[in-house]
């Protein structure tokens, strides 16, 4: 963390979902304040159904907070935009587009010429290791490959901030491990400000510069922050790694 300019700033966010014309109110998030600096890899850890997706969607601008504000580079976020890239929990690729079509979609929308965007998209397809699959449709890909496309699609649009919502939650353990390695590698090749949501403490310690934990019951509140200063690339069996993981696990279990 050399650069200390603040990229994302969340001020006192809360979210209450209203259902059936407001008769039922579900408080999902409460007083979340958080800031992320440039090129930082922030991981948000929390158990299932604690508002992780909701928090990320608020930062993305897909959901409006009930109270509080989100700033990106000092400007208030009012809606979704290409300055943030999102990788969704459920792959959410465009099924009628090939891998190439999916990855270049953001550039197409941005108005880039066909030749240029092919070039950029190819670069990112190679970066995520999908060369040779440019012409495949999403239904022909495995889960891990689909999520690589999702990552390439978000990266290719060159957003200021990358938001990843449990991107590997639906993968088997083997693929998940591989994808974590890949993510760390891609991030080291092309630095970005990243907010990564997960329910796996191991995944968090492997990837993060900084970890924040969310409380395990609704409404979700921020609990603790851990700075992970381990050298990269990391090994799951290093002594420090295991210690870090152990500490967080113990404290998280306490607050569940």
């Amino acid at each position: 963390m050399t650069d200390q300019t603040t990229k994302i700033e969340c001020q006192n966010l809360s979210k209450i979902f209203k259902q059936r014309s407001g008769k039922v109110q579900i408080p999902v998030l409460e007083s979340i304040s958080l800031s992320v600096v440039e090129n930082e890899f922030l991981v948000i850890v929390g158990p299932g159904q604690c508002g992780k997706t909701t928090l990320l969607r608020i930062i993305a601008g897909l959901e409006t907070p009930t109270t509080g504000k989100v700033f990106l580079d000092g400007k208030e976020v009012t809606g979704p935009g290409p300055d943030r890239g999102m990788v969704f929990q459920k792959y959410t690729l465009f099924p009628w587009k090939t891998v190439m079509g999916n990855v270049e979609m953001g550039l197409k929308i941005g108005g880039m010429s066909k030749r240029q965007r092919r070039e950029v998209a190819s670069h990112y397809i190679n970066l995520v290791g999908l060369q040779g699959f440019e012409k495949a449709y999403p239904h022909q890909l495995s889960g891990g490959m689909k999520q690589r496309v999702g990552i390439a699609r978000a990266y290719a649009n060159n957003p200021k901030v990358l938001l990843l919502d449990e991107p590997f939650g639906q993968l088997d353990a083997q693929t998940r491990y591989l994808m974590e390695q890949e993510t760390a590698r891609i991030w080291s090749v092309e630095k970005k400000t990243v907010i990564f949501v997960t329910n796996s403490i191991e995944e968090a310690v492997y990837l993060a510069d900084r970890i924040v934990t969310l409380e395990g019951k609704l409404p979700g509140r921020l609990k603790s922050t851990y700075v992970v200063n381990l050298p990269r690339p990391r090994e799951h069996i290093d002594k420090e790694f295991l210690e870090m993981r152990h500490t967080i696990t113990k404290e998280t279990e306490l607050l569940l």
């Binding site: 993305a60 979704p80 935009g81 465009f94 009628w96 979609m105 953001g106 929308i109 699609r153 649009n157």
Partner: peptide, 24 residues
């Protein structure tokens, strides 16, 4: 969710219609 995805890529209403609504 497809609308969320295309809006995150910066599409306006018209682009959303062309790129998601019709093909989907």
């Amino acid at each position: 969710a497809l609308y969320d995805a295309i809006r995150m890529l910066g599409a306006n209403r018209w682009q959303t219609m062309i790129e998601v609504t019709f093909p989907a």
